[in-house]
Design a binder for these strands. Sequence first.
DNA 1: GTCTATACTGAGATAGAC
DNA 2: GTCTATCTCAGTATAGAC
Lengths: 205, 205
Amino acid sequence: MIETQEKILATAERLFGEQGYAATSLRHIIAEAGVNLAAIHYHFGSKEDLLDQLVMRRAAPVNTERLAMLDRLEAEPGGPPSVEKVLEAFLEPPFRRISEFPDLIKLMGRLYGEGLMTVIGEKHFHNVAIRFLAALGRALPHLSQAELRLRGQLVLGAMSHTMFYVPVSGSKASVDGAVLLRELIVFLSGGLRAPAVLPERIEEK
Amino acid sequence: MIETQEKILATAERLFGEQGYAATSLRHIIAEAGVNLAAIHYHFGSKEDLLDQLVMRRAAPVNTERLAMLDRLEAEPGGPPSVEKVLEAFLEPPFRRISEFPDLIKLMGRLYGEGLMTVIGEKHFHNVAIRFLAALGRALPHLSQAELRLRGQLVLGAMSHTMFYVPVSGSKASVDGAVLLRELIVFLSGGLRAPAVLPERIEEK
DNA sequence: GTCTATACTGAGATAGAC
DNA sequence: GTCTATCTCAGTATAGAC
């Protein structure tokens, strides 16, 4: 069946989001999906490859949107776009999807800490990171390259932690995705605009 | 031997920090420590309990220092301590130890994403979080309780991501712990001081 | 091309001998 | 306190049925 792949993807997406990648066994996935264990390896190769395809199925359109929004911003006259605009182009596409794919968003947040985002991220997000870091640099000329990269990591940290930890549609204090987005943009642009503290260049490579 | 416990703790601390908790097997630990597999379960109960004890052995003095620094700040005359001072009391104790325990610091950063900090954190860090959130609230009277908690999460996200990702004594662009500390304080206080965006109270509980 | 049955290796955990 | 043997369950690999 061609539906086997889809059943595996949908079930794995849900279980990974609910329990995390490491805590979810392939046998749990196949039990809930009603497929055979070997079907996963036939269609996806390995557990890690399943995760990769699962993440990229949702993340690819997000990255396309991010770059399109950045393109539009940079085509506007009046100098380089502001920090807030750049952050919005980066954060709005994922956070708009929180209500539609809450488990997937939470999973993405998890992956940073599970150390898996290093692998997946390097493969699929590198060009996005380059583009946005450059745009941030033009909006923040007072920062050196080294300090800009450092602060870019802080942005990623706050973003991924938000995706994972903040209850978005859960039981307790649920927070709207749009509210989270505004909060992140205000907080992070405040941090990015702070004065430079690295007076000179950090040792490179 | 009483040294068995210590050998296990030291080896596990190193391996967990290098490879992460999930990726490190007990059999790998015992091989490098030169002890028997069952010794881990005898002395620590389980892999997760080993992690717990290992983390708290280093984190307990850090938390004691944090609270002592906060006590001193709040005893000073002249109104509530500034955001920067509160952040320094929270961040300086762990970041000062980066050169001494780089693996442990990296491990702590990992744990947030591996979902294990929720368990360990709730048990051992709750009182610290309460105290520092209250101190931040007094320094930031323009924020509602809900927005304060939200921004507190962003602080934790940036901090843990920094502990995990930023190369501190590694191969590439190594960054000094003191530099990271200053960068974090400047960035996070800039974010925390940003204007409020939640006009009213968020649905509670 | 798809899927199933089964086996292999390595994981954490535990009971019991010493 | 320590160690051997063993249990269950994980991810993976493959032979072969449809």
